[in-house]
């Protein structure tokens, strides 16, 4: 009797703790990564089917919006990977449930630690692209 909309609404309304927050993040990160993957497969296929569209797509990836999206993609991949490991560990060693709060906090900390250097490298790359004038293709 429940619906997708109902599940999303109740996931936002129910006051779950770290586990629920991590689950929602995991779903969002997974779906976001999947979306990128699908787009990427489609645009790569244009190399064969529509080369001129492929060039446009590659140029579009250098627009500020997509460069920012790449940072989000990196965050999503790191989150999904590390949180996935947490879930696997919790299923593998059920007795650790007593420490699930601490393990969740540690997981979030590891994600942040891994994301910071990735962000610095990517931000440098973005600044380089934008200052070279290669960006702005999408008019953003």
């Amino acid at each position: 009797m429940t619906t997708l909309i109902g599940t999303i609404r109740e996931s936002l309304r129910y006051k779950g703790r770290e586990g629920q927050i991590a689950w929602m993040g995991h779903r969002l990160a997974g779906l976001g990564t999947l979306l990128f993957f699908v787009i990427h497969v489609v645009d790569t296929s244009w190399v064969f089917f529509a080369p001129e569209l492929y060039s446009e797509a590659i140029a579009l990836y250098k627009s500020p919006l997509f460069l920012l999206g790449e940072v989000g993609l990196m965050a999503a991949v790191i989150f999904h990977a590390i949180n996935g490991l947490r879930i696997a560990v919790m299923d593998w060693r059920p007795q650790l449930w007593k420490y699930q709060r601490q393990i969740s906090v540690a997981t979030f900390a590891i994600i942040a630690i891994l994301f910071v250097p990735a962000f610095i490298i990517m931000a440098g790359h973005i600044i380089e692209i934008l200052s070279s004038g290669a960006g702005g293709v999408a008019g953003l």
């Binding site: 629920q20 299923d91 059920p94 449930w97 699930q100």
Partner: peptide, 26 residues
Amino acid sequence: CRTIFNCTTACPREIPVTQLIAEVKG
């Protein structure tokens, strides 16, 4: 089960529900 732990926090009898589910998975 997605190991979300809402069940464990909700249980009024303080049963470690997620742990028991993981034991069944195992």
